[in-house]
């Protein structure tokens, strides 16, 4: 079953939010790049980056929500998440993307691309899962 979406987006997605990378460097959320996540995961003892490819995007019974099916990691495990249409994901080499970029920009002031089937998002998993 997909995860239930929360009613509001976390405040750290708001443009201007200060994010601390694993090496201590501070960046604004809108300035983050793929390398920042990759380098932070390298430093982390517990977390590693997985590639999660968008397989499907379906409408949800929940208003303003969608169900996104990802193919996660080298084993292509199928994971569904239910999120608000404005929820931003970070796409490799592209940056923040959401199912409804206009709404994301309206609510968070965060510039977004349109999240589409085939996009490869950054996700996290535990390094100890071996």
């Amino acid at each position: 079953a997909p995860l239930s979406p929360s009613s509001a987006l976390p405040s750290f997605f708001m443009k201007g939010s200060i994010i601390q990378l694993a090496d201590g460097e501070l960046k604004r959320v809108e300035d983050l790049r793929t390398e920042d996540f990759l380098q932070s995961a390298e430093v982390s003892r517990e977390l590693k980056i997985d590639s999660s490819t968008v397989e499907r995007i379906d409408s949800s019974r929940t208003p303003d929500a969608v169900i996104i099916q990802f193919s996660v990691g080298e084993h292509k495990a199928q994971v569904c998440v239910e999120v608000l249409v404005e929820y931003p994901f970070f796409v490799f080499g592209q940056g923040w993307s959401s199912c409804c970029p206009d709404r994301t920009t309206q609510l968070l002031a965060l510039s977004c691309a349109k999240l589409s089937v085939g996009d490869v998002c950054i996700s996290l998993t535990l390094k100890s899962l071996k």
Partner: peptide, 25 residues
């Protein structure tokens, strides 16, 4: 006068989803 506000800092790993696949080798 503008009062200084404490700056809230969020960890990088809050921003991307944790998609646990329960996959084991």
């Amino acid at each position: 006068n503008v009062e200084p506000r404490s700056l809230q800092v969020f960890p990088w790993h809050s921003l991307v989803p944790f998609l646990e696949t329960s996959q084991s080798n």
